[in-house]
Design a protein around this nucleic acid. Sequence first.
RNA 1: GGUCGCUUAGCUCAGCUGGAUAGAGCGUUGCCCUCCGGAGGCAAAGGUCGAAGGUUCGAAUCCUUUAGCGAUCACCA
Length: 580
Amino acid sequence: MKDIKELWTSRVLDALENLAEDAEIDSDGFSSRLSVGKPPKSNMGDLSFPLFPFAKDFKQAPPVLAGKVAARLGGEKAGVTIAGPYLNIRIDRVPAISDLLARVESSGDEWGFGTELTGRKVMVEFSSPNTNKPLHLGHLRNDILGESCARIMAARGADVQKVNLVNDRGVHICKSMLAYRKFGENQTPESMGVKSDRFVGDLYVRFSQWAKEDKGAEEEARKMLQDWESGDEEIHELWKTMNGWALSGIESTYKRTGVSFDRIYRESETYLLGKEQVLKGLEAGVFYKDEDGSIRLDMSDIDLDTKVLLRSDGTSVYITQDLGTAINRHDEWPFDQLIYVVGSEQEYHFRVLFYALKKLGYPWADKLRHLSYGMVNLPEGKMKSREGTVVDADDLIDTLSELALAEIREKGREDEVGDASSTAEKIALAALHYFLLQVTPTKDMIFNPEESLSFTGNTGPYLQYMVARVSSLIARASGSVRDAEAKPELLDRDDEWELIRRIAEYPELVSRAADKLDPSILATGLYEIARDFSRYYHEVPIARADDSVLAASRMALARAVLITLRSGFRLLNIPYIEAM
RNA sequence: GGUCGCUUAGCUCAGCUGGAUAGAGCGUUGCCCUCCGGAGGCAAAGGUCGAAGGUUCGAAUCCUUUAGCGAUCACCA
């Protein structure tokens, strides 16, 4: 379809340039002014070229010009019509259908893949959990964005490495450790029968309560951090144990949601990095020593203030280690792009970080990118851990899963589904992931628990349902339909052509999603295919069409729909199920 | 206060480089199971695209101003 579009664009351009030549008009810049669109109604054609931009050159009204171009392109016989100032093109359907169906079939699981990113090494950092509490809804958005973007870029040929920088040290980590010492009574997640990351998280909450009553709590936590940094053995033992609990719990959530990493970095191993770089920068004169003794970055070039890179006592701040880790990573794996999937509240931080690296003279500094995603808010407002309004990731998936299971039972589909609880879990993940991905990443979104649990309308389960229906349609096709050979010329309905067009555009959607780091482009596209197919399915008999050749032709279309949806599911990390 | 972002139907969101009558889902109202899976389909109602200027043949889209909301501006992470 893309080729056809390009072909017609150049034909129209040629026609315009020829006309210009005849009239001795300068045709420079015509190509940049020629745009291609889609007529509002499909019966008007498949491609449209507005001719307003050339009216001035020719000193002719756009409709007159459109008529001349149309005539030159062969007029109606060639599929070219005019509608006022628009030049509309009707694509020759039969060869396009036959070509597309063949391409989808032969690509199979790799339908939608491409090569424009081949050879590019892309590192994607996401998730970044703290080892003092379980994952929450905000992490789920982060995780699915990172995972999905990684898969989409890989589909377009990139060599992707997914990394996770675990925040496993610092005063907040000490807080849950301190709470354990004070209130833990040597219990373990096993002895309490709670998920291990939840166990640690509960202690963190316990600390906050204690700190409210006792002003000395914060001070004790700071003291503990100092002891940790000086290598106190007992504290390190406790730290290892509790981090192990937190991490194994978090990892089981990753596993549950289908998120994975190629490399896990721990802040406890990286937090000392960067100091050297800052000192080198000071020597080179790109940073300066303030009169208070701290080493700073002057950002007046980009209209920002100054930023401390090293404290006056010589210790690191947050950005120091980020400088160090970025440099380390590039040394280890010279990436062409490094994408940080981090909330929009850290935009300032990344501006500073990228600027500092540029000042240090690293040419790859402009290959860094902050994929800044918006906050997930609740209808009542922000999620706040202090107020206990944070939505826990596991709880949320549990709830979704229970609802899905209840739905399966209510519909009496337990037998057809096989393992009902595992199917329910897959439906829950589809609901969750699709909900989080259908919104443009950069925008804040509102998560209404009741509404988002809905399984009807534009939702993940709706897409799964369509896939399940098509799957069973294909699985139950009779032998005569199976054996018959599809004839593209029998797919002559407008709704069939519309479906073909959407399927044909799918690879471009994947490509655009990769380029913009925006899976919502794909999510919307998949929904439209599913919706159109659903309408078609209601409208015409497919497997039960009048004769087996017609049935086989429609089945070929159904198969193309299935292949496309399944491909999209993989890229969006939405589980595929054959029955629900 | 500075910087960045957001504002489209009652609600949640689409709207590709400016192009023909601004689209979905939910909710509301009314239809459709002798028919391949009703977690479905069809239809109706619902909009001065926050406001005001400007650029343009043409603006939800670009520019300026302005209002409301949010984030951010630590020797915190």
